[in-house]
Design a protein around this nucleic acid. Sequence first.
RNA 1: UGGGGUGUAGCCAAGCGGUAAGGCAGCGGCCUUUGGAGCCGCCACUCCCAGGUUCGAAUCCUGGCACCCCAGCCA
Length: 561
Amino acid sequence: MTTNEKSDFIREIIDEDLKTNKFEGRVHTRFPPEPNGYLHIGHAKSIRLNYEIAKDYQGKFNLRFDDTNPEKEEQEYVDSIIEDVKWLGGDFEDRLFYASDYFEQMYEFAVALIKKGKAYVCDLSADEIRSTRGTLTEPGTESPYRNRIVEENLILFEQMRKGNIPDGTKTLRAKIDMASPNINLRDPIMYRIVHEGHHRQGDKWCVYPTYDWAHGIEDSIEGITHSICTLEFENHRPLYDWYINELGIYHPQQIEFARLNITYTMLSKRRLLQLVQEHHVSGWDDPRMPTIVGFRRRGYTAESIKMFCDKIGVSKKDSIIDVAMLEWSIREDLNKNAQRAMAVLNPVKVIITNYPENKVEELPAVNNPEDESAGTRIVPFGRELFIEQDDFREVPPPKYYRLSPGTEVRLRYAYIIKCAKVIKDAQGNIIEIHCIYDPETKSGLPTANRKVKATIHWVSAHDAVNAEVRLYDRLFIKEDPDEVEEGKDFLSNLNPNSLQVLTHCKVEPMLGAAAPGDRFQFERVGYFCTDAKDSKPGAPVFNRIVTLKDTWAKIVQQGKK
RNA sequence: UGGGGUGUAGCCAAGCGGUAAGGCAGCGGCCUUUGGAGCCGCCACUCCCAGGUUCGAAUCCUGGCACCCCAGCCA
């Protein structure tokens, strides 16, 4: 096996099927979302898995909405899902399908099952069905309507469809085995009556198929070969197979894999909806959300998410991926591709007292040290600058390399400066740092190579652009957001500091013209993305995508232990 | 207590009877005009446990144990 050949248990199954010619050499996968919410990174894992498999085996990949429940589904979700799947590179070409387009066919199949004596109309209420289903250890009891004659079932089912039977009073059930150890086989419900408009079908239907009944039919109609889903559907596979076998239709193979979990991250659609509805976040696209729209607004690239999905692999083991893996993916991408810039988030003024009063120099700065073709740009330098408050300490702690009274640092792309004096206000806050520069140390000069411990970034005070910077941190303070004290829920694990807004940042001129969605590395700070909604020309707003790895922070951290 | 799954390092994950890949994290060092990046090195004498088969077992057999899923007219 070559090193770059992918291998996982699903591909092994496909290889075997190819060998035995189970599907005449075809590979056809699908991603079947229910349009009841926005896609999150867990869906990205599934999209990439299904798409990559189809691509690698020269097969096909479908996008199919599993829109069988009108009570929860909306067109807004359909639209966002299509956009997100495309953004993630899931190319379904012209194969965009809707389960609801198969409703007539499903209805006919149901009639066929009734005629076979394998399905019946049941008058039991939801409560009665629950109480007759039995338990995990005890068998259920048969419905008194189980042996209705075919003709009666046909008539009643038609009436259900016509809409003259109230919600919840009748269902169509498969006649399987009330004593099965697999509860899914205890006469499962195929249709329920729901008088609710459907986002695509309008009022055409008032009976809606359940997942188990619908899904295999959908896969079969589309000629799917490998129907890949998550582990919780493993118990449903016998039912998936039963329906298809009884119908005698083309039979795809269902395969289950472990869904994605990430530390400090909530990936439950229901809970993400709750975060949005209760305004714990600004919306589905809040940059702290693990949704695809959230990651996109935050500044994550599609490429980084693809890399992440490749790296985590696929198996049947319940797993929780370290969020550091995700952060690694975006740094890996942006280190190679992001334009560098200088931005001072928490500014303090530096005055270079021996630098001429009105002099301005235009200094060349490298756009990307990892990519020579990115070229250079010009940054203005002058007598008054802003530097990061963190880059100066009046009393430097051990191993602190940056500026402090009497020490020297290099200003990136400029000169070496030495701190001569600290100016404070009446409260003792540092308001100015007076330095002297050494003209011989200008970057590029042969005499510039004097070693100093640190290089710091800066922005010319005269030319600085004011910016807002939003520092995002993890949304939850616990690795497992669901790990809570008695009586509390996951909301108690929300990180109160997940968003910090800085409104007085000073950034280099080039950043004033940044377009929405542009990504930068603010040197020594992190990767940032111009906010697509709130950033304006001349008044830019930047989202922090991820920090740079910070060795100094680690030293500080270790010092505290 | 029924059924279905899963156990390889802190987190993922290869491995398919021939003597434990790789990545993330971590830890050293080198290099550096980003405390970034890069480079080098370290990081499982052992694969949930106990027996057995075998010249040889993470891989096969037997018996345990732990964890996850299932009692929606959700998907």
